[in-house]
Structures are given as C-alpha cells and as structure tokens.
Design a protein around this nucleic acid. Structure first.
Length: 206
DNA sequence: AGTGAGATGGCCT
DNA sequence: GGCCATCTCACTA
C-alpha cells in the first residue's frame, strides 16, 4: 500500500483532475481490496463554480466534508438511488473537489464488481459512470470523509486510497463540458470534464 | 444505436 | 414542492 500524500491533493483542482487519470483507485473493506484505473474525472471549483455544491460558500451538512483538507472523500446521495464519489482538493478554505466518473476495472476485481452490480452486466458497463462505480466498489455514505492519505488505525475500518497506476501522455487527455449540469448557466460550458482518449471504460463520448 | 420515461429520496427554498 | 454531478428498461428502428 502506497497512498499518494497530502501535498498531491493540495495542488490546483483542475491539475489534480487531469493528473488523476491513469491512477489507481483502491477500496478496502472487510479484508477485501478492490481496484481500478481512473479514466474519467470532473473538476468542481468551489466558491466560483455555480455547479459546485459549495458555490458562494454554501456550507450545509451535506457539503461540510468539502471543507476538509485535500485528500478526503466527499460522497453524496443522488437521484434517490445512487452515490457519487469525489476527492476533496485544496486547503480547508477552498472547498473544491474532483468527481471520479469512471474507472477501468483491474482483473482481480472483476468478479466482485460483477457480484455487486449484477451477474448479467458486461465488463464495460460495470464502472463506466459515477453511480455505477460506487455500486461496483460498494462505496456509500458511510465512507464519506475518509482520509485517503493515511490508513485507519483499525484494520476493520474501511479505507480508500489512490496510487500511481499507468502513465498517461498529455495528448491522450481530452476535455469536455461536465455531464448532467445543463441548468447551471455559463458554467455548463466550462471544459472541466477530463477523460482518456479512446478508453472503452469512459462513460460516454462527446 | 438511440430515445424517453420512471425509479426514488435527500436536499434546499 | 421542485430539483438533482444517474441509471435501467422498454420501446423504436
């Protein structure tokens, strides 16, 4: 286990969103470790971003974990059925985050992912969307606010962390507007979604 | 392959 | 009461 350090997450949010492509997302609970390569992310830029939950300094119960230092998980419940997994970036005064939208499953995790998602789901459909990947990993609200840089003292507690994975060249990184925020005025156009070119595990082309 | 509706409940005004 | 950083299924073609 070799989690990326705190300093990594304190960098510029957009930079982190791009840099996370190719990294490995690990999740360990009840002695079982699942993993996949991050292939799609979105940046959410805090105070100045109308699409961000912390826009204009909003700090309701749900958004509180975004005010933790970079390198914590921010997980919220959406559409009555799904969870979205984000990684907090920046300092405590800077409630920004990166949404993980899709991963490419590691072979060692395929069996568990399918068990969590349903036996008839194709490999390609297991983790190609923010709600799908949470369901595949088994990530839910109980994992909100976890420190991704330091394993918990007790092994029985869940841990989520990121490690270096595959190398991604700058020219392999494409960007687009973010998914699902058409109603957020001009921010709907901001090119803050990043994904690996031609990777089949990306949620959708655009 | 692409479209459209329904599921389902926390969150916020 | 309406919105929502989503997904699935049934239906066209």
């Amino acid at each position: 286990m070799n989690p990326l350090p705190r300093e990594y997450y304190l960098q510029d949010t957009e930079l982190v969103a791009k840099s996370l492509l190719g990294k490995k997302l690990f999740f360990r609970e009840r002695g079982k470790t699942l993993s996949g390569i991050i292939v799609e992310t979105e940046a959410y830029l805090g105070f100045k971003d109308p699409a961000c939950h912390s826009y204009h300094g909003k700090k309701t119960d749900r958004v509180k974990t975004m005010y933790l230092p970079g390198g914590h998980s921010y997980i919220y419940f959406i559409y009555g059925m799904y969870f979205c997994f984000n990684i907090v970036t920046g300092s405590e005064e800077q409630p920004e985050a990166v949404l993980i939208r899709a991963v490419q499953p590691d072979d060692s995790s395929l069996e568990s992912f399918r068990k969590n998602r349903g036996e008839k789901i194709k490999d390609i459909e297991l983790t190609n969307g923010p709600g799908k990947l949470c369901s595949a990993y088994g990530i839910n609200k109980s994992h909100n606010g976890i420190d991704l840089t330091t394993p918990p003292p007790s092994k029985s507690k869940a841990f989520i962390w990121i490690e270096d994975g595959i190398e991604v060249q700058p020219q392999q990184i494409l960007s687009s507007s973010r998914i699902g925020i058409e109603t957020k005025e001009e921010a709907a156009k901001w090119p803050l979604r990043f994904y690996i070119d031609k990777n089949p595990y990306v949620s959708k082309e655009k």
